[in-house]
């Protein structure tokens, strides 16, 4: 493989990992606060549908991205109302949210199926973007990619270095104690759920605005579920999520090339390969962490204040 082709392959690897990075990062924050939201897939596809609809109608990618974020937040607010305020079972509510989102996005996006628009513009810095090999890889992506990495860095810093990040981790670890110390358990959790929704919505918008610039029902194709699994296998650490997402993206691109090269393996098996590869490698990574030691201890438990 020549360096130029390798560079193109790597650029597509990064592009295909971005929706996972963004969605998994949001879910990571939600789970660190102690809430398990299985509705990532539903929030993501709503972001994809409404993001595309808004961008197509207004002609602005930025408006589309914001609409995707808003759709994710709206879905998350519904989930937060049910699970944080009303203390309803998080697993059931999350599954319902996904089913609801997949259905509703099909309905709202029905008028936009098959329409086309230009993808998000790519960064082009004369000189830098033309550098051999690294030029396109570092300076040739669209804004979503840079935004995703900035988000990961900020969340990683916020979780470990700031007081509010510390408070949120404490709430996810032991909500009874956190309440006894006077930390606002339900408010923090609700905000964390909204952040997760915003990220999932943005990830969905990326799919329909930049990755494949059109809308098709069910286009998230299980990426929300992969994002959920990534959070667990990444031991709830932001940079490991990036690693896992890149692995998944890499395997996706590789299997496309393998299918094109017709190796004689069934196409379905190759299509499943990225999912398998990601899960296996992240499992190997997380075996080092003793007995799931990184999981927020209060994950999935509803909190009802004892007043």
């Amino acid at each position: 493989m020549s360096p130029a082709i390798l560079e193109l392959v790597l650029v597509t690897v990064v592009a295909s990992s971005i929706p996972l990075v963004i969605a998994a990062l949001g879910e990571l924050v939600t789970e660190r606060a102690g809430v398990l939201n299985l509705g990532v897939e539903g929030m993501m596809i709503m972001g994809a549908a409404l993001g595309f609809a808004a961008a197509y109608t207004t002609g602005s990618t930025i408006v589309g991205a914001l609409a995707g974020v808003a759709a994710g937040i709206a879905m998350a607010a519904l989930f937060g109302l049910l699970t944080v305020a009303l203390a309803i079972n998080q697993v059931a509510a999350g599954l319902a949210l996904t089913i609801f989102g997949v259905g509703l996005s099909g309905l709202l996006g029905a008028g936009f199926v098959g329409l086309k628009r230009d993808g998000a513009p790519q960064l082009n810095i004369p000189g830098l973007s033309d550098l051999p090999f690294a030029g396109k890889l570092i300076f040739g992506h669209d804004a979503f990619v840079y935004l995703a990495f900035a988000l990961v860095a900020s969340v990683a810093y916020w979780l470990t270095r700031t007081r509010s990040g510390l408070a949120m981790r404490a709430i996810g670890d032991n909500h009874e104690s956190a309440h006894a110390l006077g930390l606002p358990v339900r408010r923090t959790r609700f905000l964390a759920v909204l952040f997760g929704g915003a990220c999932a919505g943005l990830a969905g918008a990326y799919l329909s605005l930049a990755y494949t610039p059109f809308w098709a029902p069910g286009m998230t194709a299980g990426r929300g579920w992969i994002a959920l699994a990534l959070v667990v296998f990444a031991s709830w650490r932001p940079w490991r999520v990036v690693l896992g997402a890149l692995l998944f993206g890499g395997a996706t691109v590789l299997q496309l090339h393998a299918q094109a090269a017709s190796l004689g393996l069934p196409g379905q098996l190759l299509s499943a390969a990225p999912y398998l590869a990601t899960i296996v490698s992240l499992m190997a990574l997380s075996i080092g962490v003793r007995r799931n030691g990184a999981a927020p201890a209060a994950l999935g438990q509803a909190f009802i204040p004892p007043r």
């Binding site: 510390l166 404490a170 104690s177 110390l181 006077g182 990184a294």
Partner: peptide, 20 residues
């Protein structure tokens, strides 16, 4: 000082103190 300690197992000693 609580009977069932209101501590956070997965945080460090300093982080536990910082919270209050």
């Amino acid at each position: 000082v609580f009977q069932h300690f209101s501590l956070f197992d997965n945080l460090t000693v300093a982080e536990n103190v910082a919270l209050v």
